[in-house]
Design a protein around this nucleic acid. Sequence first.
DNA 1: TGGAACAAGATTGTAGAACAATCAAGGGCG
DNA 2: CGCCCTTGATTGTTCTACAATCTTGTTCCA
Lengths: 219, 219
Amino acid sequence: MGDTPDRHWMGPEPAGAARRVYLGILQALEAGKTVPGQRLVETDLAQEHSVGRNAVREAMQHLAVRGVVDLSPNRSPAIRRLDLAESLEVLEVAAAMIRLAAGTAARAYSSDHSDMLESALSDLEAADTSADAAALNRARRHFYRALLLIGGNRELQRLFPTIGMHIIHAQYPSPKIQAARRVDYRRIAEAVVAGNPVAAEAAAEAHVEHVRDIIRTAT
Amino acid sequence: MGDTPDRHWMGPEPAGAARRVYLGILQALEAGKTVPGQRLVETDLAQEHSVGRNAVREAMQHLAVRGVVDLSPNRSPAIRRLDLAESLEVLEVAAAMIRLAAGTAARAYSSDHSDMLESALSDLEAADTSADAAALNRARRHFYRALLLIGGNRELQRLFPTIGMHIIHAQYPSPKIQAARRVDYRRIAEAVVAGNPVAAEAAAEAHVEHVRDIIRTAT
DNA sequence: TGGAACAAGATTGTAGAACAATCAAGGGCG
DNA sequence: CGCCCTTGATTGTTCTACAATCTTGTTCCA
């Protein structure tokens, strides 16, 4: 349907110059080139990406919104670091949001949407065999994007990407989580396709519960 | 327990110069001096508040995060306008978050926290009789702040204020909602004090349901 | 030796100028 | 009447300059 407002279709992302910095840092984080706690100096990043300090600042704001960096006055921004307690707090919020996303998608599902879920799941399989970190993250986002688009709740689309999941995945790059995803996402998808909100919500919560367990024991 | 990071204790708020603009606009919105759909011109605001254009831009970013303004490239930011459908979408997300906040607070409640809830509730009563719009909003925030502090989930504290509730309240300043709050908040508080998460979550959802009904009929 | 006070450097906070890029409205022309 | 183009308004972006603040290292005194 052509009514998707593509303007900032998935949570506000920076545009133009700031975007380069923003994507660069996210990418460096996924690649492990930057680690939690690391300080990010404005002028360095500005030179590195050939942009003005303003643009760097703007990128930092967006990263802070998504819970990737911590911003405090008169201090260099730092990649956010989560202790176990705060990780679990993030997961608790994530559980509520994923649950809502799954339930909403199940309620709104129609056969028009089958392509989205299919391609997301096949992406996941493909990435799973390749074991490429970037591809895995892409596939994960792809799945949630499908869920959010099917559900059609624009406020949820706006807020969902702001949960601090980037850091969670950067801090606990466990292959076990990926294994869990493969099973859990499929279960969620099945419930959505079946138009069964209760089952979808249950599957969503089960998934977060699995991640929670893995993280708890992995620490 | 002095470990509460007061730095950005309640969702990231702008600091310094940008803060003036940010607060000015929120205030103007609550006072009805700015209306949904209104365009906000950078240079005007900069002069008006005696700050640089970048400060205005920064304020806009924060307002966009909180769902107060809509930002699209090469266009003046505009106060967000919600049609009925999107209002309901916002409320759906709000329901999930408030539910989580209430449940978490109920689980974490101890007698140390009684003051917070008490003062929040008495604030609400006081504001209710005075019927001053600003005081009402302050009291509402006070209540949720208490809930979030009791629950202690830092990620929830970060994300909660970013739900687009500012606009909801700006667009539907119905006295009926305030009446519902008086009853509903007390019921939530009672469940929290009783340490009953299930009841707290139910009361939270009931409240949002009431607001939903009021908005549906008020349009 | 320990530590307090101070000095120097690094980094962020903020305003402003300048220019490019884009958009919106109005005017003229076919 | 409708299309195109010019023009003004507004945002996007970089750069400069300086104030405010933090950090670090050094000196000096007890």
